[in-house]
Write a protein that binds this DNA or RNA. Structure first.
Lengths: 340, 340
DNA sequence: CATTTTTGTTTAAACGATTAAACAAATAGT
DNA sequence: ACTATTTGTTTAATCGTTTAAACAAAAATG
């Protein structure tokens, strides 16, 4: 019933040992093997439509040529773009990607991580959710190569590649100040994740630097699970008040998306009534009448570097820990340029 | 040097055979095993941080609990959404997803497919590019379970789940006709893929049904590789002419995106100057001043059904071929409603 | 011509699990 | 008390590769 062809079958067909077949098909022992026999093995392998059983090979060689990838949500454009870059980079080195979305849920994250580790992924690229430190230390202790991407835990010494979120938020805020804004609000995630805190910190630092007094209700926090409602509420509270914000900084493209939709509905004029800046570049905002000024993350560089670093760690587990913080790029668009 | 813990190690630690350890950890031979020993095995397994080597297990059981997924481009919102649904559905059955993006490139597709098959994926969910028939027949012949999604080849008898593209395009066009449009243009891919041809066919049929004479230069074809330029050119040629189109139907969200950006740049008014309809719902269009009427694909249903069908095929390879064509939903928005 | 070297191939163990079958000891049945 | 059954565990084969080591035959060397 159409059982799969194995080395044994080829060996039997040609009349040699499986070892020889293996040597030929893997081009080992180059000089030693009889050309005629080698050719015969190759052609019968082809004729029988032989395909290496990668599982068996992996068991023996202890190498799967597989990278495990965990992102927050593959259907988010930021994650999707990253996944794509990583896929392409991995492919260059003949690695394949197994992936999962954590949904920022530690439990789910743990489950996916287990699956990837059990499948003997050679290494992992991870964007961990909150409270994932235990799993991270676990990986360290088990000496499983991995690189964190987009986020990291300051308390744990690991490889990572992240945006310099502090600097990016600072620059974005400074940009708003430069254009005369004084009542700058920010909507960020309510989260213990360091990289998000850095965004708030950059925002606050820029205010301070410019001697703008920070009012705590100008920094609104929203929960990822009820993001739409909370974002709308936050926008509302920032704009419909005695001294409404004249500019808003959004902590992510998702927050920005909900906010802009709401602002659009309410016919609030951008940038006349309020200027907008957001993290993460997204196509979607190009269609808005005032395309959004945003912080573009160097996704391509991040993804490619992550793969490169990971493979270095896989090939040599004594390689030093690398921690990379990349600069974002502030893309200035009409949402912050009056009369554009 | 921190070698991984195997059944053998646990067996040695407890002082029993590996077989027993395996039985306990897999809850086989339930009644037979000494409770005390079982408990001891379990606790040492935990203490030693044992994790099943899924590779070894797969080799023996001939089951990887892995689904291979090939889509056109994971960074496209449509693909990303589908991937996410599939991931979640697979997870429910304890399957993990390995994926790759074909970029509509047959060569790349072949390479990814090989990787997935060699890794002994239990089954595949595929969105094949042009000229992929040979690989499809190969899979059939090798009796590797798979389900095509989004597209299929009419000449090859396979499982598939697709949108009823003909009907969807027909309805979209009819909708435009109902709103008084007579010069309806379409921009579709230049491709031999059947599902795309169906979109054109539906468009033409609707014209015919409404006794609108079709002018061949009203149906423009663009190549995926140079999509931006060609789409802009197509829009231009449809709108800047003696009898410009008063409505446009776009064959995909990607085409629509480029077209709308161009239309926006040129300050062409929607829907006053031209009404717009597109395939695939996309967040992005919500921010456009005239959100786009679109054909929403039942992505969730497609993805979940694909996984369900695939698992049925994996569990029982004698199950009959299923071919599912789902209805799209025309979401009517301001881009086709005058004065909205 | 005896010996060493080279060439070409096979043997056999291993990777880490699963599992049918065998086995030994304890318990039950008559 | 002897057999039959149940309980608890081990033995050993196997999945499909890889690869060091062994081996045999042919060619080269002195």
């Amino acid at each position: 019933m159409n059982k799969k062809v194995s080395l044994k079958d080829i060996a039997a067909a040609v009349g040699v040992s499986t070892a020889l077949v293996s040597y030929v098909l893997n081009n080992k022992k180059e000089g030693r093997i009889n050309k005629v026999v080698a050719e015969k093995i190759r052609t019968t392998a082809l004729a029988m439509n032989y395909r290496t059983n990668q599982i068996a090979r992996s068991l023996k060689t202890n190498k799967t040529y597989t990278i495990g990838l965990i992102l927050a949500d593959i259907s988010n454009p930021f994650s999707a773009a990253l996944a794509r870059i990583i896929e392409d980079a991995a492919d260059k080195y003949n690695y394949t990607v197994i992936f999962g979305s954590s949904d920022e849920n530690p439990e789910k994250y743990r489950k996916i991580l287990d699956a990837l580790v059990n499948r003997q992924a050679d290494g992992l690229i991870l964007s961990p959710p909150e409270h994932a430190e235990p799993q991270i230390t676990d990986l360290l202790q088990q000496q499983i190569p991995f690189v964190l991407i987009d986020r990291y835990f300051p308390g744990v010494e690991t490889n990572y590649i992240v945006l310099d979120n502090y600097k990016a938020a600072f620059e974005a805020t400074q940009h708003l100040v430069n254009y005369g804004h004084k009542r700058i609000g920010m909507i960020n995630y309510a989260s213990s994740l360091f990289h998000l805190a850095e965004r708030s910190r950059g925002y606050l630092a820029a205010l301070t630097r410019n001697k703008i007094i920070f009012r705590s209700d100008y920094l609104q926090q929203v929960n990822a699970t009820t993001i739409k409602e909370e974002t709308e509420k936050a926008v509302h509270s920032l704009l419909y008040r005695k001294e409404p914000a004249d500019a808003l900084l959004f902590g992510s493209n998702v927050i920005a998306m909900h906010a802009v939709k709401y602002i659009n509905e309410k016919k609030i004029s951008v940038p006349k009534d309020v200027a907008l800046v957001c993290f993460d570049e997204t196509d979607a905002f190009d269609l808005f009448y005032a395309p959004l000024t945003c912080i573009r993350q160097p996704i391509k560089e991040m993804g490619q570097l992550a793969v490169k670093m990971l493979l270095e760690n896989i090939d040599d587990n004594s390689v030093k820990i690398k921690q990379v913080s990349l600069d974002g790029e502030l893309i200035i668009r009409p949402s912050t340029i009056p009369g554009a």
